[in-house]
Nucleic acid binder design. Structure first.
Lengths: 245, 245
DNA sequence: CAGTGGTCTAGACCACGAG
DNA sequence: TCGTGGTCTAGACCACTGT
């Protein structure tokens, strides 16, 4: 049997082209989170490469957190694990001192023209129709977070038909199951401000109370923007940790 | 000539032991930022290893941002580049729209007993003597940041004798030059709160104005804590960006 | 046990930077 | 032109996982 040929610019190193090839298969959904990929030996055979070269390609994707190696078992497409990444920042504690996952109450869900900053983030036309959703997150029935969420209509038509009771607090699994959209990574922009009259009443605090504002854009494996989200929560519940070098 | 022998637990892989060895040399100051290390071929010869094994060791340290490879030139000890990391967060703009580096005015510099949270961070006894410094950072003569800084006396005696005019806005180069202490990495904890009466008057705003509070602990290559710092700045000047996967 | 990834060898040749 | 790191080969043997 003839070995397969790597696609892409042949001036690029082979390990990069192999990495590109696997990354694209994940982006296209041909390989899904949890799937096992071919073993290093099989890949080497298939593409006519030395084992070391295949290892180098896989190392790149492990570094990008697209693949995961498991010694003795195989190499797998990684399941992104930031469903509840807010809770690396906001620590909502129950009476027992354990972390709680806030319940979710959807206040609005409708089609609206996208404002400029949302349209830019989602790469759609300003004023084009998009799905808008407004959620309240509660702990012990007390409101702790307010979220504005925008989704591009094109990829998320199916989201409009879902019964509200089928939408749990975690949206990304719903995006995957109902709309076939997998979130691979997200970027967040964080600042703080006074709550203001509108959010003060929603969060049941004084208007001068400081709130943290997190804007998040979630991306697919192919770098398409899937979701724009702005969350506001009480600053006193918030702590963020970072390591810099 | 006999090859040198790697130190450390011989149950560990050779590439790890070589990485440990180089990391330790950097930590001890035997190799300093900017220094060129031996070439891969020389290291391989010296330790009796294959070139690929040496590359693997160096790859670890590059990943840890301790070394930097420069194709065609060599491999060097990296100079940490976060002297002004605050300014990845706070954007202080001058009249010309360019980033400004705030001036620094030291309000107090003295020996005080370390409070509990500082002592814990710096691994010294609670109430033991430490160097305390209180600084104001200004842009266009307007105060924008207030900083409380604690240094362990042991490593920073020399810091007490420096003339104030020799201390510029960037402290880490001073720590290196005057005290022989190199900051290799830092951890930051970030939250927000209302300014309160004390800081409102220092920053010249209303007490209810939201401020960002960043606590930072700076570490040496050997993981010893070198500095505890708490900075407060106006939230409206602040924006933080993160990528999550 | 078979199959996987992890470590390591001993080279070859290429691409880059500086003198 | 020389010395550096970057790519790639073609194996060997070890350590881990599941049957």
């Amino acid at each position: 049997m003839q070995p397969s040929v790597l696609s892409g610019d042949d001036r690029l190193p082979k390990y990069m082209r192999l990495a590109d090839s696997i990354r694209t298969e994940v982006a296209l959904g041909q390989r899904r989170p949890g799937d096992q990929i071919a073993s290093e030996a099989e890949l080497a055979m298939h593409y006519g490469l030395a084992p070391g070269t295949v290892r180098q390609a896989i190392a790149i994707l492990v570094d990008e957190r697209i693949l995961e190696r498991q010694h003795g078992k195989g190499t797998f497409v990684r399941r992104p694990k930031f469903d509840s990444s807010m809770f690396r920042f906001f620590r909502f504690l129950g009476a027992d001192g354990l972390d709680l996952e806030p319940e979710s109450r959807i206040l609005r869900r409708l089609i609206l023209p996208a404002p400029e900053h949302v349209a830019q983030a989602l790469s759609i036309d300003i004023g084009a129709d998009a799905i808008f959703m407004n959620r309240l997150r509660l702990v012990d029935s007390k409101p702790v977070l307010v979220e504005d969420i925008w989704l591009p209509l094109q990829r998320f038509y199916a989201f409009l038909d879902i019964e509200e009771r089928e939408i749990g607090p975690l949206l990304y699994p719903v995006y995957d199951r109902e709309c076939g959209q997998i979130v691979a990574r997200a970027e967040e922009y964080l600042t703080a401000e006074a709550a203001g009259v509108e959010f003060a009443s929603m969060l049941n605090v004084e208007p001068a109370e400081p709130v943290i504002v997190i804007e998040r854009i979630a991306y697919a494996y192919d770098d398409a923007a899937l979701e724009w989200r702005r969350s506001r929560g009480l600053a006193k519940e918030f702590s963020y940790h970072a390591i810099i070098r």
